[in-house]
Amino acid sequence: MIPFEYLEHTADIKFRAYGKTPAEMLSNAAAALFKSMVEPATIVVNETWKVELKAFDLEDLAYQWLCEIVFLFETESAVFATFSVNLEQDGTESMRLLAEIGGERIDLQRHSFENEVKAITRHKFGIKKNEVWCIQVILDV
């Protein structure tokens, strides 16, 4: 299983990320999102950020999770390379995501930036489970 792949899109960035579990899929989706922004090989992990999110279903939780990463990148002026994700059921009606993100503060001398991701779109956003879990995402750049 490849962790993620980028697909052809005329104007924006489209990717699919995979996982044996929904948590692994969300971790790989975060890595795909971030690789489109910054080359991960240039990032040293020396700080961690904790994320806690709640949503009614996995799709909403996935959407919030990716939006959160864009938000943290801009507001923390940090770049990220590791995404450890845990999911748990929160009562009968909602799900909770607990994650730890590893990275460092932006160093313009060292970090090589690629695309500016403006936002995660809802266009053709979706999660499927066949042999493995798969999420499809289109980023507005």
Binding site: T10, A11, H123
Partner: peptide, 9 residues
């Protein structure tokens, strides 16, 4: 016009 999200660009 080209491919957008929701509306076309």
């Amino acid at each position: 016009a080209h491919l957008g999200y929701g509306f076309p660009i």
